[in-house]
Design a protein around this nucleic acid. Structure first.
Lengths: 286, 286
DNA sequence: GAGTGGTCTAGACCACTGA
DNA sequence: CAGTGGTCTAGACCACTCG
């Protein structure tokens, strides 16, 4: 058990890489106990040094993923976590800093650190980047959601690739429309892997009040952590024209999204058609 | 001169807010010396407590803005900066951490901390989010640039608003085409404020080898720090059709960008028309 | 080997929240 | 008031780069 603590006086254990953050066999260690990060392989071309705080980050991530700490609830205080992992508070802090920067955790001074969620804040639709041309986002009020269809089907080659499934695997397919100020603006086709979302129906979707990702969190334990979008300009086909009440010559934004949970596991593919005559897709570059 | 250092033994200066990072009248202070952050006003409704590292961040920002440290060159080491500002290395570190997160500085272990630039790395076009459908970005090779026009004109109301000018102020207007694999793909109209870019000509643009923002840095001392884009789907007009060799029925991505230098000063407005039949605009959501 | 950024600790104190 | 996150310091040591 090489301990990565740097003694100020006694120069013990100067050999080997500083790693291994096993919380030691204390009684308060969680079910995800002996957490070696599997980097001891001495033949590895890159010794893959990993700082302590990164290992702590992984441990926290595991507790998030396992559901030990649920969305919108508080995680233990920094002091508690430091004791639990047998490291200094500063090290825990740095781990949490990174998780907060990735929007997995939210710090609130004086209150604690909380698991981020899609189901609150009235920032509603964290991943939706469409904004009205004039007036603030709130002037329109919340979007009206209308479920057109929700059916079980089989993954096409394209969907299978996106969701890391095999062609023909069970998937759920949802089609819906979002309207702003009663004007249909977004037509979305959504594909979900079948097994994690077993039991999802059009009814449950329609009944739930709030963003879809909120329902996924509370009802299916699936938390969307990040997403990638590919954006193109397209013309609609006949069916899409009808649903969006648009002409066949109306150019639309095609927004193809793949959303990931923890561990970069793809959990949703979505294709949205956005009407951009009164709205725009906003992006910030850094 | 209230000093925010927390003595471990002598409990001096427990009154007032901890602020004021004036480097003291030491000889090594830069030209932007006495840098109070103007927050001493006792009548202010919010006392606006600002931590030390934020004040250091502002000081570093000023040195960047003033040109004391130029793009792609190294800034002083953390130890030096700590001595200069009379704070601990950890405090300088936190300031630099944030600036690095904002892509203003780049840390390189063992070498130093460098001023970020648009003119290197062969990541070329940091702000361009268009990628080819198949194959990596490099398979196409670099974009071919073709300047169509570069003329002085007067700011329209729209351009004036975007660039924080008055209608009729002098502006520079550039039109160019970017081609990938010899296929015209992007048509861009660019508006620049006249005075910072005095002397910019089509010739200089054509001669310069590298991203336009690189030329702005080295020749005009204007560094683009961040940008916002508004994206829509549109159909081209006749002239645009001809330049992009596209039909009038080809939907295009309209990408309207406003780019900012330090202090959120808008320095460029740009409207791009992207052909998205072989490329897509990529965005990452967190 | 010297210099630079990166990690880790221990301890003190500050600002904010809520009972 | 106690508890939480936030700031700041000082010091030791590690990993990386380059001459």
């Amino acid at each position: 058990m090489i301990d990565p603590k740097f003694e100020t006086d006694s120069k013990l254990t100067p050999q080997a890489f500083s790693m291994n953050a096993t919380p030691s066999p204390s009684s308060d260690s969680p079910s995800t106990a002996t957490a070696h990060t599997g980097q001891v392989s001495p033949t590895s071309p890159t010794p893959a040094f990993s700082p302590l705080y990164q290992q702590i980050k992984v441990l926290i991530l595991q507790s998030l993923q396992s559901g030990e700490w649920k969305p919108s609830s508080a995680i233990p205080s920094e002091v508690d976590l430091a004791a639990r992992y047998k490291v200094s508070q500063g090290t825990v802090r740095k781990a949490i800093d990174e998780l907060a920067a990735e929007n997995l955790l939210v710090r609130r001074q004086g209150k604690g650190t909380f698991v981020a969620t899609h189901a609150e804040h009235h920032i509603q639709y964290r991943f939706l980047k469409l904004f009205p041309d004039n007036g603030d986002p709130n002037s329109e009020g919340p979007a009206q959601r209308h479920i057109i269809d929700c059916k079980r089907s089989r993954a096409s080659a394209e969907v299978a690739r996106a969701l890391a499934l095999r062609s023909g695997d069970a998937v759920l397919q949802v089609r819906r429309i979002l309207s702003f100020a009663s004007i249909p603006t977004i037509l979305e086709d959504i594909w979900l892997p079948g097994s994690p979302f077993k039991g999802l129906t059009a009814e449950r979707l329609a009944d739930y009040n709030g963003p879809m990702y909120g329902l996924f969190e509370t009802e299916f334990g699936v938390r969307m952590v990040r997403a990638e979008e590919k954006i193109r300009a397209v013309l609609p086909d006949e069916e899409q024209c009808a649903l969006l009440r648009a002409s066949a010559q109306t150019p639309l934004l095609s927004v193809e999204r793949i959303a990931y949970t923890y561990s970069d596991l793809p959990m949703e593919m979505r294709r949205g058609l956005y009407l951009t005559d009164k709205h725009y897709y906003r992006n910030e570059l850094n």
